[in-house]
């Protein structure tokens, strides 16, 4: 029996100004599951997330959070309803210390901010040593961990992360995914957009493929991973690069190489 759906979109159409970037997208994110959205650069993955979290206007369709219709609601109110969002870029407050960043993540908490911060420090030991540093002085990996921890400070029921491992070394990438899996196990519905398709599909309980703003495919991570044609056709550059590189190296390496290549 499927887990309870905590967040759904129905026919979600959104963009910047009046021009849609994503068209009629339906997704479901369930409790205790990682729902992954993959697709080529510019497919509209970040745009879809921004519309869900209330950062840009919804042109048509619905977003349901824990049963309530929330499309068009500003993001600060969605936090109170259990949503947390970790953007792809600019995902920390650079001039605030690590501790202050975490405090901001727990801004809506009535109590237990201190306890939650020490919980985050246990979860991400790197942050513990850096609590007094300003976020702009963190390494890329530490910054992404801080961004994730900041998102968790509000005890969300739905956690939405946009490319949590972009630009990270393989070691950090593994650590971050480890944490994402641990977060879902606490009863959270996680929605993750990920550049590294293979990695993402490995961690996914359910995955959607977004191409040119439309949902093209869905399935369990394993199903889509096994579908070489899907990788060839819809992951575009990455798929091709990976396939070519596969002749000389492992798939993992190929993915990472294309990752580095595609991110300036």
């Amino acid at each position: 029996m499927a887990n309870e759906a905590l967040l759904t979109t129905e026919g979600l159409t959104a963009g910047y100004g009046a021009v849609p970037i994503v068209y009629g997208v339906d997704i479901i994110a369930r409790r205790c599951e990682v729902t992954v959205i993959v697709g080529p650069n510019g497919a509209g993955k970040s745009t879809l997330l921004r519309a869900i979290v209330g950062e840009i206007p919804v042109l048509a369709g619905r977003v349901r959070l824990n049963g309530a219709e929330v499309q068009g609601m500003p993001s600060n109110r969605l936090v109170r309803l259990g949503m947390a969002y970790v953007p792809q870029v600019a995902n920390v407050f650079p001039s605030l210390t690590v501790r202050e960043n975490l405090e901001m993540g727990g801004f809506r908490r009535k109590s237990g901010v201190k306890e939650k911060i020490s919980e985050m420090c246990d979860l991400f030991p790197d942050l513990k040593e850096a609590l007094k540093k300003t976020a702009q002085n963190l390494s890329g990996g530490q910054r992404n961990m801080l961004a994730l921890a900041r998102g968790l400070m509000s005890d969300p029921t739905v956690l939405i992360v946009d490319e949590p491992t972009a630009g990270l070394s393989p070691r950090y990438e593994a650590v971050v995914w480890d944490h994402i899996v641990r977060v879902k196990e606490t009863g959270v519905a996680v929605i993750a957009v990920e550049q590294n398709t293979r990695r993402a599909l490995q961690g996914a309980d359910w995955a959607y493929v977004l191409v040119l703003g439309r949902r093209r495919l869905e399935g369990t991570g394993a199903e889509l991973l096994g579908n070489e044609e899907m990788v060839q056709m819809y992951i575009g550059k990455r798929g091709t690069v990976a396939a070519v590189a596969n002749a000389t190296g492992t798939q993992e390496e190929a993915d990472r190489e294309s990752e580095v290549g595609s991110k300036p």
Binding site: V53, E55, V79, Y85, A90, V92, L96, S154
Partner: peptide, 13 residues
């Protein structure tokens, strides 16, 4: 926080 990043501040509630 708002001075640093208004969008992220809103996403913090």
């Amino acid at each position: 926080a708002v001075a640093d990043n208004r969008v992220l501040a809103r996403a913090c509630g």
